[in-house]
Each structure stands twice: as structure tokens, then as C-alpha cells.
Design a protein around this nucleic acid. Structure first.
Lengths: 237, 237
DNA sequence: TTTTCTTTTGTACAGATGTACAAATTATCA
DNA sequence: TGATAATTTGTACATCTGTACAAAAGAAAA
């Protein structure tokens, strides 16, 4: 058989594909080797260990993705209209998670799905990376959102950013659910629609009044001050 | 050692705890037995196999949880005020996922976290259950929401229900992130606050105009018809 | 008590797993 | 070309995995 000139890449890609759908523990090095058309020994040769392979996948994607995010964030911050700016900021966060600008096979969606799965599995190797690499970028976004919605406390924005990331992850992990529940009206794997739906829903969620009974988000949206949530922090009975 | 009169329960509880934090594949039957203070053989005696154990966990929780959801939904549908009704419907969906009314140890949050982890791992055993058991309940909620927001297409409501579930899951899977990013201002493990934040954000998201450039959700919210999302379905550049 | 049923224990086994390593193969460059 | 380095292969090993099953222990009923 002719030798694959980029076996390293093939292994990375195969591992990414398998990890992102089955999780870390359910995939063996032999599975990866088979998928990549490589010998199992070749995997440990290139990446030392299974953990090392996972680490390399992160190293490969984190840089380009967060770089792209910051680029888009800088551009978004320059948008004049308050409403448009907020939307642009959210889009700058979401878009690179779905399609990476880099030419890495599989695009950004596969890597984001992998991150979702790893986070659910509580993967130890990944735990540290997340806090070290991603929190900086996330903070930059929260600050940008804070600028558009200065009346909202940071804690509320953090909660809503949490919901955004959860929605993002779950959409990539379980797109069939959208297709199924919409009875074919929508396709959960349609990334373009996913982005638009996610951005518009998130912008609205961010603009909601604070749970402590604060006025609406922006002067333009005259939703009127609403009462505190009925039965706040107690059962609904 | 004195014999545990409810070893079956102890095993179920231990398995639930371990599966919900480490995932299905990373936990061995021996791990579960150790945690439960049981003999490994005892696990297969009670539940036949590892899959059988997982199945039993689902059987245990699905009924009570969805029963409670439907109870709360029925009550929510009777709320007169449109805004309050929508909020009550969302709360009826969210609340039982956090704290089960049944007296099963660990409450509903642990089981919901388990569901989140299983969904991320793409667990085959669970795959069928989800579609069979949960879709009915979810459809009932979507229809209730449709009634409050009749101008929105079903596909959009499905997308937003997807985001709700994702936000819910991720909050239970990764609460530390909220604590970390808010710099101690908020506690991600505070389920009461999680519910309030999630409900208020979701209600706002549901009321957002449709992505195809439709008017705002309800007459009371005079946000004014907004333009279609800038650069819809294309890159933000 | 004795008998019968239920539960727990301990052991065993076939297969899979991560990893190490020497040998074989292929590429690179003098 | 030949020499050196980089990669791939095949095999081996200790450990862990799910599961089966017989023996032991305990509970329940006679």
C-alpha cells in the first residue's frame, strides 16, 4: 500500500471524528488507527499517548478559533447602532464555533462538538485547557456585552453566556432532535439556520430584564418594567 | 458486615452518581459496586447487565418527572395573563428537571445531568428511550408555547426549545463555569437561581421576532418590527 | 428445627485496552 | 550510490472490562 504522506493529519482527523461522536472513553486507539488507515503503534509514535492525542487536537484548533473570534469581536465593537452591535458581538462568538476559517478538515463544528462531549464526560485532560484558554476569550465577550447592556449585573450576563454555550453545544451534539420535533420542517444539521436562530434567540435573551425586577434592556425596546418573576425562587405549586 | 436491606437502591444510586459525573463508559461495574458497598456480582444479579442498570435508572425517573411536568403544564395553561402563562409554561418544563418531586435520592438534577452526559456520549441504549418517552412531553410543551405565541412558526419554536434544553443540560454539567466567570458573584450550583435565570432568559428568547423578519412577539412588547438579521445566513465578514 | 427461596460472595474467563519496543520499511540527504 | 534519520509494522504484556456461575450466607416459611 502506498504510504500516506500525512499520516499524522489522518490520525488527528480520525480521532477528532470519533471522539466528537462517541466520546473519549468509548474510542480505542485501535479504532482510531483503523479509521485513519494506520497502525496502532503509529498513533503512540506521533502523539505519545491517547491523552497526548486529545491535547494535540485542542492545540490545533484553539488558537485559530479564538483568534477568529477576537477579530470578529473587534469589528463588532465598532458597529454604531446599539442593537446591531449586540447582535454582531453574539455572532462573533457563535460563528467561529460552527465553521472555522482555517482549512482544517471538518471545520469548526466538529471540534466544537468534541468540546461539548468532553465537557459532558468531565474529561480531566481538557478541564485545565478550558479554564486557561477559553476563559480569556469569554471574558472579552462578556465585557463587550456589558458595554451594550450596562444596566445588567455581570452575574446575569454570565448566566446568559452559560445558556448560550449550552445551546450551542447541544445543537451540535443532538441536531436530529430538531429535525424530529419539527417533523421535517427544519433540519437540525443546517448550520446556517442554527446560527441565525441561535443569534436571534440569544440577543433577545440578553436583552431581557434582570431577574431582580429591572427595567427592559434598551430604551428602544419599550417592553415596560415587568414585575419580578411570579413566585421567584420558590416552587410554582 | 451487616447486610444492607436495600442493596438494590444503593447500587442504583451509586451508578446514577457515577454515570452522571464521569459518563457511562468511564465507569466500571466494579466502580459502582465499590461506591455502593456491594459485590460486583451483586450488580449483575439485580440488573442483569450494565445496560440493564442504565435502563433501570431511566425507568425509575422518567415516569415521575414527566408526570410532574404535565401536572405543572396543565396548571400553567390555566393562567390568564399571556405573559404570565408563557412564563409558567417554561417554568413547568424547567423546574422538574432540577428538583424531582419524588423522594428518590439525589433529586431530579442528578438524573437530568445523567441525561445530558448520555446524550453527549451518544449512548445507544438511551437513544431509543429519549425519542419514545420524552418527545411526547416536549410536544405538549411546544404546543402550549404555540398557543401563547401563535404568530411564530413551529420550526422556530422547536429551535428555541432545543436551546432551552441545551442551556439546561450545560448548566447542570458545568456549573463551575458560572462561578468562575462571575468571579464569585454567582454560584453555578445554586439551582434556585439557575431556574430563575433560565426561565427569564428563555421567555425572552421565545418572544423574539422570527428570523425571517417578523414583528415582535406580543402586543405588550412594543419593540417595533426590526429588520431581518444583518447579513442573514452569510458570514459577518 | 428443616426446607425453600433470595441474596451475596468469590472466582474465573475471554476479550479489549493503553502502551512499550524491536524489527522492518521508507524517506532524506551526503 | 550509501548512510542516516524518520516512520511504520508487528508483537507482547500487564491491566481492566463485562459477564457467568457455583458456592456460601442469609431470610422466610413450613
Amino acid at each position: 500500500m502506498t504510504r500516506n504522506p500525512n499520516m499524522r493529519e489522518a490520525i488527528l482527523s480520525a480521532a477528532e471524528s470519533l471522539f466528537s461522536t462517541r466520546g473519549f472513553n468509548a474510542v480505542s486507539i485501535r479504532d482510531i488507527a483503523l479509521e485513519a488507515g494506520a497502525n496502532p503503534g503509529s498513533v503512540t509514535y506521533h502523539f505519545k499517548s491517547k491523552d497526548g492525542l486529545l491535547l494535540e487536537i485542542y492545540k490545533r484548533h484553539c488558537g485559530p478559533m479564538n483568534k477568529r473570534r477576537i477579530e470578529l469581536l473587534v469589528a463588532a465593537r465598532r458597529v454604531r447602532d446599539v442593537q446591531d452591535r449586540l447582535e454582531a458581538v453574539v455572532r462573533a462568538y457563535v460563528q467561529p464555533a460552527f465553521s472555522s476559517s482555517s482549512d482544517l478538515a471538518g471545520g469548526g463544528a466538529r471540534f466544537t462538538r468534541l468540546r461539548a462531549v468532553m465537557s459532558a464526560e468531565g474529561n480531566a485532560v481538557v478541564g485545565r485547557i478550558i479554564a486557561e484558554i477559553f476563559d480569556d476569550t469569554t471574558n472579552a465577550f462578556i465585557e463587550a456585552i456589558e458595554q451594550s447592556l450596562p444596566h445588567l449585573p455581570r452575574r446575569t450576563l454570565v448566566w446568559r453566556s452559560q445558556f448560550l454555550l449550552g445551546a450551542l453545544y447541544y445543537t451540535l451534539v443532538n441536531p436530529e432532535r430538531v429535525t424530529r420535533l419539527s417533523r421535517g420542517e427544519a433540519d437540525g444539521a443546517d448550520m446556517a439556520e442554527a446560527i441565525e436562530q441561535l443569534v436571534s434567540a440569544t440577543v433577545a435573551a440578553l436583552q431581557a430584564p434582570d431577574i431582580n425586577g429591572q427595567a427592559a434592556a434598551e430604551p428602544a425596546a419599550k417592553a415596560g418594567a415587568r414585575k419580578a418573576p411570579a413566585g421567584s425562587r420558590s416552587r410554582t405549586a
